[in-house]
Structure formats: structure tokens, C-alpha cells
Design a protein around this nucleic acid. Structure first.
Lengths: 211, 211, 211, 211
DNA sequence: AATGAATGAGGGTTCATTCAT
DNA sequence: CATGAATGAACCCTCATTCAT
């Protein structure tokens, strides 16, 4: 009771709820990239957004929910990107496969800030069911699509490999390349990473290598 | 009054410094696996070790140092493992390469608890110079060795690939497979992971595939 | 483009200041009864009134003032009730005394919600001068009236007791009965309480007992 | 993680857990009396005890538990007092009854600080089941004992009143007198209150009045 | 007159660290 | 060596209050 202090207020912004939430999620990503997940606090996020302390609870109720929404945002953005890449690619299964291999290293997805967020959540996912669920659900869908495409290519090209294994290998390869980019950004550019990823595909499906 | 009383000695734990530290590092690994890095506290660790609150500061001065030592321990153990695997393998470069690809999925290295620790630290490594340093230094050495072996195999087999790229690809592949095992342990066994890793090698060096 | 559009008027609540304030005070009483004084917030009150957050500050400037007005309201209502009861009673001092003893257990005054409010404020009154003042001022007047009536009865009946003591005793008795009703409503009805209160009077003034 | 500031520490006290808890409960009583329940914070209590912020959670886990223990303490102390008063009184039921009526105004029980605490908790008891439970349980026992004694006196003296009603009336009277002492300490001393309480008894049991 | 998004001081609680025992 | 009571900075969250709409 009796909030004693009375002070004049500073600026006041008005934005739609949607905008505010997006703004806060962006700020969260920056904060995780800058300070790490374990040192991302309500203060680092709200200050990164140039807003007040209470704003996060106002829009997300709790820190936990903010983090979950942030993870969901990243995951959703990724999903949209690979769907789009797949749709924009040529008609052949192999072309689509290459497009998917490449999209992981696209400017919009493969930013250091966002990689940091992926790994931050993966790092906690063992002990946080919620995180793991969000991650694995998205990943399952992606793997299925990849496996389907591999299957097609295998049938067309008469390859001897197993579709599931190739899809899993590609996923793993790209995940590992992200890790490399996170840990040694100076030694691994997105361009190089993409080449390695594609050369994996070429190794598996030598008959489809262009040229 | 005569000194007839003999105070019963309070039980005394006598463990060498070395032992105590090892015990605490083990407890830290368990705690990170169980609660995650961000919810690993001095209390969770010391309770995991069945020791008192103050013990960690006594032996490691600070929580930060405990965590660094834990990471170093894991990294060192890994380094020892792949050195040993390489030495125990057959004489040919290709055999050594396979041995290295396989050691990542060895029982002693590839435990869920330890994977959780690797990713926990990787997740924070973007913002923690110390962690990143420990990780990249070890990784650099490993990559050099791998690259050297690849070089030998390439020369011997007249392959057209670049050694550095293959080594990096192998590292990435295995890292990505670890991630898969961490997130979906039910869908990815160490055995399967090893097969995928080796089949990557076979794809790159088809002339060396046994049989 | 012509001004063809007619913006639908947002609904407009038009209630006089008086009505709004009364509505908010009622909501405050309900909130205190439901959540307790210490967990009554601007939010619980405005939601109880189905109005917006800012409404209270608009009408009462501050939470503190809302609470004071609420206490004043309850106290004023009580005062009006006993005045009316006294006026409506028979002409004799004793009859008036009985009417006053009884009014405390009247339906309009002795509601659980309101008892909760009385005790909520009494509970804070030790440390809140404002509350104590409102309470004691009203009580002083009541006690004076009671004492006067007792005096009359004593003189008429030739009793040996002291008027002030009897009046104080009656006040205390009724306050204590309220407490009983608050804490154990199932074991103490207003009817029972009234009987106990009246029997106190009869004990003090045995010559006036009807019948 | 990484508690950054390192500062020298001040004095350090050692006391048994029991003592510390008692000390904190005393401090809580003082704080409630001084600031009221709703403005009693962890800070007011720990500062009242001249101890650090964290001490309460260390010993009571939460503020809620501290408050419950404080209420229990007061209630228990009261119970012990009236038991002792009853045992120390003369053998007759009436004497015991007088002793019980008087003990409420004993120096050890009837201190303003403690009255403030009683009413603070009563004020919240409507909405706090835990508080109400502690209060009513203790009160039920007391009422039973009182009723038993009244019964005896009634039988011995051939009175026409009902034991339960007299007991309830006495309890209510004393509770109401406490309220009076809380709100108007200058106008109501413990001595006066005791007299009013006893004169209630005398009114009910005129044959037992001494002298 | 009324709304409700935004603010930020202050609340309860956690936890790395210290130190008397 | 080892313990664990004690500390207090910093955390997340609540809520009275403000003010643009």
C-alpha cells in the first residue's frame, strides 16, 4: 500500500501489443547474444529495448514465458525460411534439397545473434522440457521433409544410401557447422559453411552434381 | 579437575585435494545435466556431492572457477580419449581417421550427462570469452590433427577434395550428431550416430571403404 | 473521399460522481471481504467494479484516500443506523438502550462483508493514525449517548452501577460478539449474538427486564 | 551467476536456531505493532532484529511462514497463560472463572504490541484460512474450558443462565475490551478493563460476589 | 469522463560468498 | 580441513500511479 514517491514521468510510447511483443523478443535475442542466457535478466532485456522494467511482465507475464516466446519466434522464423526456400527452388527433389542445405546459411537465418540463441536454448534443453519440446517438434517436421526429398533423389538416381540416414546426416552437418560459426566466426564464414554442406550432398549423390 | 574426558573425534573426511576437486567436478557435471547450467548453484553441486555449502569456495575459490575447471576437465578428458584412440588405431592414416570419427561415440565420451555439459557451455560461449577459449583451443588442435590425416589420405588416394574442408566437415558432422543425441536420445543411438559419421567418411573417401 | 463514415460511438457510461464513488466504495468493501485488506489492490477493486484501472485515481486521487473514504462510509452508515434505531425506539431510556444493543446485529449493519471491513481497519488502526481517528471519533459519540441513557436508567431504577462502565461494557460486548461472528460464523448467528448482548443488559438492569 | 561485488563483512552473531527464530518472532511483533501488518516487510522485521535481509528466509523459508509462526507464538503464549492462571487459582470453579477473566488483562498478555498483533491477524482472518484456523482452534478449547466452569458454577449456585451463553459473553466482553484498549489506550487501562470484565461475571453470578 | 499501456520504486526471495566454529 | 549460519547484492515480479488517447 501507499506508494510513497511521486515523480514526473518521461516519454511515453504507444505501440500495438504485437509490435511491443516483437520489440521485446528482438531485445531478448540481442541480450542473449550479448550476455548469454544465464545473464540475461529482465533488466538487460528491457534496457536493450529502451523500455521500463515492468514492461515484460505486462506483455509476457513472466520471464519464462518471454524466453519461450523468443525460442518459438526463432524456431518459427526458421521454419518459414526453409519452407519458402523449398518452394522457391526448382522443381526437382535434388534442387530442393540443395536449397534446404543452403538456407541454413542464408543471411536472414544464419546471424551470429541468432546462432547464439539457438545454442543457448539447446544448452538448457536437456533440463527444460519446454525448450526441448519446441526444438524437437520443429526439427521432426524438417527431418520428415528432408527424408522425403532424399527418398525421391535416391529412387531417381538409383543410389544405395538410406534416405533417413542422409537426411539426419545433413541436419547434423549443418548443426555442427553452426556450432563452428558460433565458436570460431573468424575461421568459418557462412559461405564456407555452405560449401561444406553442399559438398556433403555431392558426396552422397555424386550423380546429381551439377556440371 | 583432571583431564579424564576424551572428546570423541568428530568424523573426519580425509580426501586429498585432488580427490575432493575431482568429486566436486563430477558433482557439477551431474548437476548441469540434471538442472541445467543456469540452475546449477553452489547448493545443487555441494548437495550432489553430499558435502557442505562452503566446500566449493574452499577448493575452487569461486563458482566461476569451478565451472571453468569442469569445462576444462571435460575437454581434457576428450582430448585424452581421441589421442588414445588415434594411437591405438592401425597405422594407416585412414584407419586413424575412422578411429577418430568413432571415438566421439564411445561409451566413455558420449554420455548424455557429458553431452549436456558440452552444450551447456557452448550455449554460453558466445558471451563468455573464457569458455570459448577453452573450447576453441582444444578444437584447434584436434582439427589440425584431423586435417593432417586427411591430407595423407588424399595424397595416398588421389582424391580431389580439400583436407581442411573434410576435417571441418567431419568435426561438424559429429558435433551435429551429438546435438541430435542430446535432443532426441530415443531416436538416435550412439551406434547409429557412428554409422552416419563413418558413412560421411566413406562418401568422401570412397576408395578406402573396407570391403 | 466523402465523410460517409459514421464512427460508432464507444459506449458511454454516465454516472454522476456520487454514483461512481459509491460504486467504488462498494467494490472496495467486497474486495476487502474477499481478499483481505493487505491483498486489496487497485486492480481487485476496479475489477470488482467492472471498471478500468485508472478510475480510482480519477475519483479518489489515491488508494489511501479510497480506503479512508471506505472506512468513513462504513462508520457513517453505522452512525446513521444507531441514530435511527434510537429515534424509532420507545420513549424510555431503557427501551432506547435495548434498541441500541440490538441494532448492532441488524441485517443492514451486521453483514459478514462489513464486519470484515471493520476488523480489517481496526487491525491496521494501531499504526494508522487516520484510521484510528475515524474510528475513535465515531465511537466517542456513541459512547456518550450510551452513557447518557445508562445514567437515566440508573437514576430511574436506583441501580448501583456506574453508567460509564455499563456503556463501555456494552460496547465491548458487542464488539467482541462481532469478532465471534467474523471468526466462527457457523457457530454464532446474529440472533444468538443479540440475545447475549441483551442478556448482558438484563443482568445489569434486572429491574427492567420485560415480563 | 558471478556475484560481482565483494565487500568486507560486519559483525557476525551466532545463536541457536531456536533463539534466532524467537528473536525474529519478537521483531515481527514489534514491526506489526509499529508499522501495521500490511506495511510489515522483510526489511522492517530484519532491521527490527538488527539482522540481515536474508535471515528470515533462512529460518522461515517465506514471509508467510514467519507470519504464521508469529501468530502461533502469540496464540500459544496466551494458551499457556490462561492454563497457568487456571491452575494457580483457588479450587472453586468460580475462582477459576475469575482468574480466567482477569488473565486477559495481565501484564504479560495484555501489552499493546500484542493486542495490535491479535487484531492485525483477526483483520486478515476472514480471507486467510490459515490465520482463521489458528485462531479458532485455540479459541474453541478456551471456550470449552470456560463453559465447563460456568456449568459448575451454575449448578452450585442454582442460576438460571445457560453456561454456553455466559462463556461466550465473557469471551466477547474481553475481546471487545481489548479492542477498546487498542483503539483508545488513554481512556482504557488494563485495570479498568479487568473491573468491567469482572463486573460482568458478578452480574451473571450475583450470589458469588465476594463480600 | 473513462481507458489501459507504461512506468519504476519497492516487495519477497535466491544465492555466491564469508567466517566463526 | 570442513561446516553451515549469516550476509547482502541482485534477481523477478507487483502494483500505485500517470497520461496519451
Amino acid at each position: 500500500m501507499s506508494q510513497t514517491l511521486i515523480k514526473p514521468r518521461a516519454k511515453r510510447r504507444t505501440a500495438s501489443k504485437q509490435q511491443r511483443q516483437a520489440q521485446l523478443i528482438k531485445a531478448t535475442i540481442r541480450s542473449i547474444a550479448k550476455h548469454g542466457l544465464s545473464e540475461t535478466t529482465m533488466a538487460t532485456v528491457s534496457s536493450e529495448a529502451s523500455l521500463s522494467q515492468g514492461i515484460i511482465n505486462l506483455h509476457f507475464q513472466s520471464k519464462d514465458r518471454l524466453l519461450e516466446e523468443t525460442l518459438s519466434h526463432i524456431v518459427g522464423e526458421y521454419r518459414a525460411a526453409w519452407y519458402k526456400a523449398m518452394d522457391s527452388a526448382g522443381d526437382s527433389a535434388y534442387e530442393k534439397l540443395e536449397a534446404l542445405a543452403a538456407v541454413d546459411f542464408d543471411k536472414r537465418i544464419c546471424q551470429r545473434n541468432k546462432l547464439a540463441v539457438w545454442f543457448a536454448f539447446w544448452g538448457e534443453s536437456r533440463s527444460r522440457l519446454t525448450y526441448r519440446k519446441i526444438c524437437t517438434e520443429s526439427s521432426r517436421e524438417y527431418r520428415q521433409v528432408l527424408t522425403g526429398l532424399c527418398e525421391e533423389v535416391i529412387v531417381q538416381g538409383g543410389y544405395k544410401v538410406r534416405a533417413h540416414q542422409v537426411a539426419t546426416g545433413l541436419l547434423a552437418m549443418n548443426g555442427g557447422l553452426w556450432l563452428d560459426m558460433l565458436l570460431s566466426p573468424t575461421e568459418m564464414s557462412a559461405q564456407q559453411a555452405k560449401e561444406i554442406s553442399l559438398s556433403y550432398l555431392w558426396g552422397v549423390f555424386p550423380g546429381h552434381v551439377p556440371g
